[in-house]
């Protein structure tokens, strides 16, 4: 496969473990050119998009993502975010983005106090973003969760602000699209599964879209997300 033109820099922290999967999933898109960024680097190598993958950076020994945020590359990631670059944080990557204050809120331990790994329905809340442009508002997609600390929350004031500005990208829901408590795998406030920054150029989400890009390993509902990112970059270039 010839490499595409949309450059995806995948950050590898010690303890990351979904970097290969993310790379593999992106390779199924001819327009994508995924490559790895080492946590000690200070150069994003011309990335169009940066992905912070899932895993257990630094073992998650202190607090999830709490050590990774101090990696040298995170300064570049923060600057990239400020400059409007597309950043996707998946699972541990989401946790790291909140620790770095690039995204709102914090991820606490699942309310069931157990690790959860299972398919999960998500309701799409926004489609006017670079991550969800190829989805429909209210669409229900199935993307697996796989975490021990996915219980997102934020302070009461902040919560109001987040809702007012419509920063919630995905909510946990049942098959019918109802964001009910029984469909919430970890106790996240308001069933929040993924949130955006104010500029809509940074998305953090607990579910793993890279795991559902091929039918044989469980589905293709994650493709729309990467497709949206690629199209958004290409459109921006075209314009």
């Amino acid at each position: 496969m010839t490499a595409g033109s949309v450059r995806f820099g995948i950050v590898v922290f010690p303890g990351s473990n979904c970097e290969y999967d993310t790379h593999h999933a992106l390779c199924t898109f001819p327009e994508a050119h995924p490559y790895y960024l080492w946590h000690k680097d200070r150069d994003l190598q011309g990335a169009d998009c940066v992905i912070l993958p899932g895993g257990f950076s630094y073992g998650d020994y202190l607090r999830t993502g709490a050590v990774a945020r101090f990696s040298p590359i995170m300064q570049e990631v923060a600057a990239f975010a400020k400059a409007g670059g597309l950043i996707l944080g998946i699972c541990n990557g989401f946790q790291t983005l909140t620790e770095a204050h690039i995204l709102h809120g914090a991820l606490r331990r699942n309310r069931g106090l157990r690790f959860v790994c299972h398919p999960q329905y998500l309701r799409v809340e926004r489609t006017d973003t670079p991550f969800t442009g190829r989805m429909r508002v209210g669409q229900v997609i199935q993307v697996p969760v796989n975490h021990n600390e996915g219980n997102w929350t934020a302070g009461a004031d902040r919560l109001q602000e987040i809702e007012d500005r419509g920063l919630v990208a995905f909510r946990y829901c049942d098959a019918g699209g109802n964001a009910i408590d029984a469909a919430n795998p970890n106790g996240a406030t308001d069933n929040v599964a993924g949130i955006l920054n104010e500029g809509n150029n940074v998305l953090g989400m607990m579910p793993h879209p890279e795991r559902v890009c091929e039918e044989i390993v469980g589905g293709i509902d994650g493709r729309a997300l990467f497709r949206s990112m690629i199209d958004s970059v290409l459109e921006r270039r075209g314009g």
Binding site: N17, C18, D21, C117, P144, R211
Partner: peptide, 13 residues
């Protein structure tokens, strides 16, 4: 098995 990551590496059919 829901407490185990049974999908990482994208090989689990």
């Amino acid at each position: 098995w829901q407490q185990y990551d049974h999908q990482v590496q994208l090989n689990t059919v």
